[in-house]
Computed example of a mutant assay.
Amino acid sequence: MSRKKVLWVVHYDDVNGFLESARQYGATGVAIHTDNDVRKAIDVFHAAGMAVYAWRRPSALRDPAMREAQGAVELFAHGLDGYYVGPEGAPGQATCDWDRPGLADLATSFCETVSSAANGRPFGVTSHYRAMAQHPHLPWAAFFAHATVLLPLACWRGAKGKVGHGDPADTYATSIRLWEAAGAEHDLIVPMAGELDKVTAAEITAYAAKATSEGVEDLHFYADRPSVKAAVRAAVRNA
């Protein structure tokens, strides 16, 4: 099985340092939060033979959301290989809470703008692995309608400890089941592993094995941080 391995990152101080980190993981591509200089990263990573994707949890307010969408359009014009949008719930925070009624039109406008600029390149959606069971009012259908890949964040351990049953294979399977229940097309679902600084090498191996058993070729890992153990980096490289 020929695998694409995408390493996600929230922030880095030096693009060349991040490139070296991505090489340590054996990544074939990186997903970079748009707070970073993605345009510069495209040049650096393309020269190294790696794909560059951008990602963002966009504002749930129209003007800043559409500014982000237009930024994605400009990055595609510069050679971006794909874009992932990450709507989440944030109770009481109108600027970033997508788990509210009445946001389907904004989701559609955002997705139409970005997916049109993608012009066949990947346009993905990522969010909580429990989908509607976690965020019942998030406009899932509007986001799914334009996606070419669906990336539930199937973490089994985070900053507060165990997520779900704390088992990579169980979380993987649960994410597929619940995203399908929210209307996702099965063949588009590619659950994402993480958080890399909270998991073990054995768990990364179990995640990759579950992907194989589900017939999923691509692997996504959230997220690169300096605190990720060398054994975990090696497990990602060997996955």
Rank of each mutant, 00 (worst) to 15 (best):
Y84K: 01
T126N: 12
D105V: 10
R121G: 13
R100D: 07
R56N: 06
R57Y: 07
G82H: 09
Q70S: 12
K160R: 12
T95F: 05
L61K: 12
Q70N: 13
A133Q: 07
F76W: 07
A147P: 06
G49P: 02
H46N: 04
I42K: 13
R130H: 03
G86K: 00
V73T: 15
G124F: 12
E112M: 11
R62L: 12
P64I: 07
D97C: 07
S109M: 15
V44P: 10
A147Y: 02
P136N: 08
Q70R: 14
A159F: 04
S115C: 14
V44Y: 08
F143L: 05
A142K: 02
V163C: 04
A145E: 12
R100E: 15
P87Q: 05
Y84A: 06
G158C: 11
A133H: 13
W140I: 03
D97E: 02
P58D: 09
D105N: 14
P101F: 14
K160P: 03
V73L: 09
A142C: 09
V85D: 03
A141M: 06
A107C: 11
A94P: 09
C111A: 15
G164C: 08
G71C: 08
D99V: 05
T108M: 12
V114Q: 07
V114F: 08
H137Q: 06
V114P: 01
L80M: 09
G161S: 04
E112V: 12
V85K: 08
L80W: 02
P152N: 03
A117L: 15
G86D: 07
G89V: 00
K162N: 06
G120I: 13
S116G: 15
H78Y: 05
W156D: 04
P58K: 05
A72W: 01
A77Y: 00
D97T: 01
L103F: 13
D43V: 12
V149Y: 02
G164K: 09
L75G: 08
Y84E: 08
F144Y: 08
C155K: 09
L61P: 02
H78D: 10
A118G: 15
P91T: 11
V85A: 14
G161P: 06
L138N: 13
L153P: 01
Y83F: 15
G82F: 05
D97G: 00
A51I: 00
H146F: 14
A133W: 06
